[in-house]
Design a protein around this nucleic acid. Structure first.
Length: 283
DNA sequence: CTGCACCCCTGTAGGC
DNA sequence: TGCCTACAGGGGTGCA
């Protein structure tokens, strides 16, 4: 479950169901799931055995569990799930890592069909794991400063959607919520960042924060069973999407059919009337 | 600093 | 039924 609202939903579930529990053993079932743990799968398993997991934290789309001064870092990629359930339930074919706990209670399974996600044990990484030091604060962190982001955004020489998706500028925004925020702000994805005026940038950043917050309140967006919380349940923000995935359906604001464009090997959805294409496009 | 091409994977949907 | 292509909420890397 990729973007901030979905990852935050998972973080909350982990905090509730795994926080304060002690890992008994870990099995890495697919080596690719720990490819960023450079010391290898056996080291990953050994490093976590016997460790007590404390708080669950998050920056953007990354989350981690602190274990004393250390951190257990996770990124869900396109299809990763962190599922908590009865240890006796069947092992689904896409389970990549299994964590058993010393209390004999529900286990934790990192499940990932496409294996774009990963986990790593980061010594000393409880506060902010080293591998994600380059990730910018997300809009819900105390360290996030909208004025700084606005300044940096306007200094870019690129298209506004490309900038929104750049996790080193502001983190947590992916393809769905970038399109939704741009629609709310009435901006086209190809708009050159240097042509945005102050009010437009403010409107956009407010829209980003609002849409992420509303989606979080709905438990995230799921179109299918791939995007679920730790209990396997889907969020329902898909009902509130204005443009994403709605090609040819009417814009909720003006009724004009939503348009789909290819962009960065993905799709961008816009209302051609509310988000007019700029004369000088930047993609 | 930037875009861009391409890589990592599996599964599904749709056309033929 | 098979075979093909396009596409899917991710990021990282290397190169121009």
């Amino acid at each position: 479950m990729p973007e901030l609202p979905e990852v935050e939903t998972v973080r909350r579930g982990l905090e509730q169901h795994v926080g304060g529990r002690t890992v008994e053993s870990v099995q890495v079932l697919h080596p690719r799931a720990v490819r960023r743990h450079l010391a290898g799968a056996p080291d990953f398993e050994a490093a976590l055995a016997g460790r007590s997991l404390d708080a669950a934290r998050r920056r953007g789309k990354y989350l981690w569990l602190s274990a004393g001064e250390d951190g257990l870092l996770a990124h869900l990629g396109m299809s990763g799930q962190l599922l908590v359930g009865e240890p006796s339930r069947p092992l689904s074919p896409h389970v990549r890592i299994r964590f058993a706990f010393s209390d004999g209670g529900p286990d934790l399974r990192f499940t990932d069909q496409r294996t774009f996600g990963h986990m790593a044990f980061v010594p000393g990484g409880a506060e902010l794991p080293g591998p994600i030091a380059h990730i910018a604060p997300d809009p819900f962190e105390a360290a996030y400063d909208a004025r700084t982001v606005a300044t940096r955004l306007r200094a870019r020489r690129t298209g506004v959607k490309r900038a929104l998706l750049d996790q080193t500028l502001v983190s947590g925004v992916g393809n769905i919520y970038a399109d939704e925020a741009l629609w709310r702000a009435g901006l086209h994805w190809a708009r050159p960042t240097e042509t945005l005026n102050g009010p437009e940038v403010s409107r956009l950043l407010a829209a980003v924060r609002d849409v992420l917050g509303e989606a979080l309140a709905a438990g995230g967006t799921s179109f299918d069973a791939l995007y679920v919380n730790v209990n396997g349940q889907s969020g329902y923000f898909d009902r509130s999407l204005a443009v994403y995935g709605r090609e040819n359906l009417p814009c909720p604001r003006c009724g004009t059919p939503v348009r789909r464009d290819a962009f960065m090997n993905r799709s961008s959805y816009t209302c051609p009337r509310c988000q007019p294409r700029p004369r000088r496009a930047h993609w």
